[in-house]
Design a protein around this nucleic acid. Structure first.
Length: 738
DNA sequence: TCCTCTAGCACATTTGAATGGA
DNA sequence: ATCCATTCAAATGTGCTAGAGG
């Protein structure tokens, strides 16, 4: 039996307190038991401390080890779906994702262990409806549900393990059952979501968070549905998913066959009725009467009709079936069971995953500790947050257009790091990488630049500012650029090309119901400066990031949209610090014609937002003709160190008081007296920023002790009670340790 | 009336146990 | 006794559809 005693290091540290949220939605929704980690961090740390440590701007100084890269193997398939508007079925029992996330990792230290996590966050705060052949935002998103993280069953495993095979998250399931106890990822139907993959370094049993790398593939953005809305998606799913073979035209469950069966069934029924009702003396009634009713006639007519090609569907598999598209998968024979589902599962997984590694036992311990974290409400921040904090700078709100952004803060390469960080310690994160690898535009994104940007949950946290949101970009926003190879299965599109990710800028500040109206001012001048210290990878999968329009900069923090984008805004030093930006080849220009549905039509591709261009001298200017909404920025960039204190937004005049009250420390003892002692002794100054729900990855205690498998879930519970489902994904709770 | 969700259906795939042969 | 290949059934995944509910 795992216990805290076994792993003293798991003891909650002061920085963790804020991460401990009970899962109970009701309670947490109205009264967070603990102040958001980001808030705590903001209080505890002087702004200057929030800034990431200086990082060499010279890309050449970066060692290959830092260049952790992730490729979406089945990017072409994703692009095909994305071009139409990816829909994911969610059911009460949980439904797998299709396409699934098939990834290739590189740049890891073969000897170090890593944990891979999958989480899915709202891409925007809108609810959608399928109308007129496209998705339209019809209102605000529902309250955010408890965030869950799916841990890859192989975790933790060595870098060699991860790099030696295709990493698949196909076991992850999506559900709309808010009371789900199976560990599935809970999502709202008719909402737009963005999957993220996190690679967390686990240097050894006792130390976590040596480095974090987060990856976002814009083409994997999807809309959740309980039933497919777009016939094109259905066709794609049937054609690509082996499990749906039966519904193919040549299958036994094809429409033709089904119609035929229905006809036969009706015929049988009719016969039965006839038999029952017929005159026993009339033998003719007993004869088969295939077509005796209007229904039969209809059925026959349907059965005889060829499959209805959807002329509006621009998708053409190009003769590439799902199998053709997929890269031969190396079986993950490491125990596919949900890692946290059971200890035994974990043990098996560990054993398998750690094969060939001297520390298989150690790995098991890690898993156990991992589980403990969830049991004892330990924050996953220890794994992610320290890095997350840094992320904000990189992704900067503008990031929606970021193709790939990797932030490497003064963290020594994993292999070189001689001083791994304590497991729970939030002390100086060694490395933070946030990658956005938009390989494709999100054509299905309605021209809803107007979609309100999600508010950063933790205004106080600088990290928030740089939150992942930027990377996630706005779901509702159309991609700025799209690979010309979109929809193709050519090997070329498999590589992570720099695509423009929907710009946050497009986010509509208006909290009111979103409309699919494009945002008019996408070409706003870039923020004066971007104090982001982003250390971009010069990897092939360069990233592109968009600039933040000025109109976004001045938005109230309370505004979801503003919060979403404001991080990137006002980053004074970014412009000159950006080291390099590579623009995607002209080939990125997306043929709009390929998108039959207006709502999904990709806007013209812009390599870099105008604002950003200004700040980045080295970056070639992009065609200004592109749609304002589009701020494609496939580029490789290095980000300068950020000086938080210099950022005006970080010092809003009106703190979000009500929230702070709810998070008062006095409430802590009620929950767990032991936690209160860990709080920073010094009374933090008033919150510098409004407290928005943050989306840090957290290991939270599950209040539902009745759950059959308490260890199964890792909750990333944001601060409830806010009307803003969106928020900064990163919080600085771990930073509070400093 | 419209929209959304659910449960059940039929089919295909996957998985693992059982079996038999080398 | 072990290993390997084959077979089979159960479990699982899939989209479709009718019906319920708001």
């Amino acid at each position: 039996m795992l216990s805290m005693e076994m792993y003293p290091s798991l003891t909650l540290g002061p920085q963790r307190i804020g991460d401990c949220f009970y899962r109970d939605r009701q309670a947490s929704a109205h009264m967070p038991l603990f102040p958001p980690a980001c808030d705590a961090a903001a209080k505890a740390l002087p702004p200057r401390l929030l800034a990431p440590p200086p990082v060499p701007n010279d890309p050449t100084t970066k060692t290959p080890k830092d260049e952790v890269k992730m490729e979406l193997e089945n990017a072409s398939l994703w692009k095909q779906f994305s071009s139409v508007g990816t829909e994911m079925i969610i059911t009460k029992k949980g439904r797998r994702m299709f396409p699934g996330l098939r990834l290739k990792l590189s740049g890891l230290n073969p000897s170090l262990r890593y944990i891979l996590l999958l989480d899915i966050i709202p891409a925007d705060n809108s609810r959608y409806r399928f109308q007129g052949g496209g998705w339209q935002a019809v209102g605000g998103a529902e309250a955010r549900l408890p965030d869950r993280v799916f841990i890859h069953p192989d975790s933790p495993a060595t870098g060699a393990h991860w790099q030696s095979r295709t990493i698949s998250f196909h076991y992850a399931k999506l559900t709309n059952n808010t009371l789900d106890s199976q560990g599935h990822i809970i999502l709202h139907s008719l909402h737009r979501y963005q999957p993220r993959v996190h690679v967390i370094e686990a240097r050894d049993v006792l130390r976590w968070g040596g480095g974090q790398h987060s990856f976002v593939f814009p083409e994997t953005q999807f809309l959740t549905v309980t039933a497919y809305q777009n016939n094109k998606i259905t066709e794609l799913k049937i054609s690509a998913n082996p499990f749906a073979k039966g519904f193919r035209e040549d299958g036994m469950n094809s429409k033709k066959q089904r119609d035929a069966r229905q006809k036969r069934k009706i015929s049988v029924l009719t016969e039965t009725l006839d038999i029952v009702n017929c005159d026993p003396c009339d033998s003719t009634e007993l004869l088969p009467q295939p077509i005796t009713t209007s229904t039969d006639l209809q059925a026959l007519a349907l059965a005889s009709l060829p499959p209805l090609p959807d002329p509006s569907c621009g998708f053409r598999p190009e003769g590439a079936s799902y199998q053709d598209t997929l890269v031969p998968e190396q079986p993950l024979d490491l125990g596919q069971a949900f890692m946290a589902s059971q200890m035994s599962d974990i043990g098996i997984s560990m054993a398998n995953g750690m094969q060939g590694t001297p520390g298989s036992e150690v790995a098991n311990r890690m898993i156990e500790r991992y589980i403990q974290c969830s049991v004892y409400g330990l924050s996953l921040h220890s794994l992610l947050l320290p890095h997350a904090l840094l992320l904000p700078t990189t992704t900067t709100t503008t990031t929606p257009s970021l193709q790939q952004t990797s932030f490497t803060f003064p963290t020594p390469p994993p292999s070189n790091s001689s001083s791994p960080q304590p497991l729970l310690s939030s002390s100086s994160p060694s490395a933070n990488h946030y990658h956005t690898i938009p390989e494709t535009i999100i054509p299905h994104t309605p021209t809803d630049a107007s979609f309100p940007a999600p508010s950063s949950t933790c205004q106080s946290g600088l990290q928030d500012q740089i939150s992942v949101h930027s990377l996630l970009t706005h779901p509702g926003q159309p991609l700025l650029g799209e690979s010309m190879t979109c929809g193709n299965n050519a090997p070329g599109d498999q590589s992570s090309e720099a695509f423009i990710y929907p710009n946050i800028l497009s986010a509509n500040p208006d909290p009111a119901p979103v409309t699919a109206q494009p945002l008019p001012n996408y070409n706003h001048p870039p923020a004066p400066s971007l104090p982001c210290s982003l250390h971009a990878h010069v990897a092939p999968t360069s990233f592109a990031f968009s600039s933040v329009p000025q109109h976004m900069q001045n938005r109230s923090f309370s505004n979801m949209s503003s919060s979403y984008a404001h991080h990137a805004l006002h980053l004074p030093n970014l412009s000159h610090q950006v080291q390099a930006s590579t623009f995607p080849p002209s080939s990125f220009t997306h043929p709009s014609s390929s998108f039959p549905h207006p709502p999904f039509q990709p806007s013209s591709c812009l390599a870099v937002s105008s604002s950003f261009q200004q700040s980045v001298s080295s970056v070639p200017s992009m065609p200004s003709t592109a749609h304002p909404q589009n701020l494609p920025n496939p580029a490789t960039s290095s980000y300068p160190q950020v000086e938080i204190g210099a950022i005006p937004q970080f010092n809003p005049a009106a703190p979000y008081r009500p929230e702070m009250v709810l998070h008062h420390q006095s409430l802590l003892p009620q929950l767990d007296p032991s936690l209160s002692s860990n709080l920073p002794s010094s009374t933090p100054p008033p919150a510098l920023y409004p407290a928005f729900p943050s989306y840090p990855l957290r290991l939270c205690q599950d209040p539902h002790s009745s759950l059959s498998i308490p260890f199964r879930h890792l909750y990333r519970q944001h601060q409830h009670g806010h009307a803003h489902p969106q928020g900064t994904y990163l919080d600085m709770s771990t930073r509070a340790v400093f």
